[in-house]
């Protein structure tokens, strides 16, 4: 008799593995919008220096890189002005690492609200990934400012049409950062100490990505290992687009895109699994 009726919601012990529930997330897009707004407000409310910090930090980091890796260690920058080279790497890397780090504590940081109300849990990491775009935009604006300056000064910088793939690059980083982040967050719901490994791991990963050195300076087996890192094509193509040099065939971007999609779906699958009973363990 019950089966003839229309139910809006059926609660069962476990959903099927393949039920990604992305449609539900879409229905809650207003909520995602509010979460993004919340992050945005929280970020402006924090300090007056808040927004400024987003400018100071990349400039300082880039200066340090320029001095240590450029002037002291004399690493190659493919003949590009070292400051611009490092700023480019830094700008793009920071979005990926930002997404990864800030989604990796989804469960632990939101235990309070998760214990009180239901909404698609995925809306939290998704909104975090979107609100990270704000700081990326600020950093990118900064990069553009220096880039214009170097262009006008007539340095060896040759922008080209690859600039048009920038949105795709951002999307790939979002997919990888979010996907890896929610995988980590699902694991941290069982093992709290993995949290500490995240920032360390991201740091290590940066050295395994051509952020502070060009791919062209690496040869042989190491080069192949670097290319296996799906962030490598993203960074290299970004520099190809804005600065005009890269030793990587742009078709490797398909590999990154493929990886981003896969890691995103695996992340969502694991996340949905953990989500249903996470609250019992806090």
């Amino acid at each position: 008799m019950i089966t003839h009726e229309e139910w809006d919601l059926i609660i069962r012990p476990q959903r099927s593995w393949w039920d990604l529930r992305l449609g539900e997330l879409w229905r809650y897009r207003d909520l995602v919008r509010l979460f993004v707004w919340r992050d945005f407000v929280a970020y402006y409310k924090q300090t007056i220096l808040g927004p400024l910090w987003y400018l100071i930090q990349p400039v300082l980091t880039t200066l340090v890189f320029t001095v240590i890796f450029g002037n002291i260690a004399k690493l190659s920058t493919d003949g590009l002005p070292p400051f611009l080279f490092y700023l480019a790497g830094n700008t793009i890397w920071s979005y990926f690492s930002g997404c990864l780090m800030s989604t990796s504590n989804t469960f632990t940081a939101n235990a309070g609200i998760f214990g009180k109300v239901y909404f698609p849990r995925l809306s939290i990491p998704v909104s975090v990934t979107i609100s990270n775009l704000i700081s990326f935009a600020i950093r990118f604006g900064l990069f553009l400012a220096f880039w214009c300056y170097f262009l006008l000064m007539g340095s060896e910088v040759r922008p080209n049409l690859w600039i048009l793939v920038l949105p795709a690059l951002v999307l790939m980083m979002a997919g990888m950062g979010l996907g890896l982040g929610i995988i980590v967050s699902s694991l941290t719901s069982k093992y709290r100490d993995l949290q500490h490994l995240v920032s360390f791991g991201v740091q290590l990963l940066m050295y395994a990505t051509p952020v502070i050195y060009p791919l062209s300076s690496v040869q042989g087996i190491w080069r192949w290992l670097l290319i296996a890192n799906p962030m490598t094509p993203v960074i290299e193509i970004f520099r190809l687009a804005f600065l005009g040099t890269s030793s990587l065939n742009p078709s490797y971007l398909f590999y990154s895109a493929f990886f981003a999609v896969i890691v995103f779906f695996i992340g969502v699958l694991i996340f949905n699994r953990v989500e249903t009973t996470f609250m019992d363990t806090v």
Binding site: I2, E5, E6, W7, D8, L9, I10, I11, R12, P13, Q14, F114, G115, K116, V117, Y118, T276, T277, M279, D280
Partner: peptide, 23 residues
């Protein structure tokens, strides 16, 4: 369980309409 904060171990709950909860 009714508010979907945690999943049941077995059994089914069917609901019509929107739930607001104060837990």
């Amino acid at each position: 369980i009714l508010s979907q904060v945690t999943a049941p171990t077995s059994g089914v709950v069917r609901v019509k309409g929107r739930i607001a909860s104060l837990l």
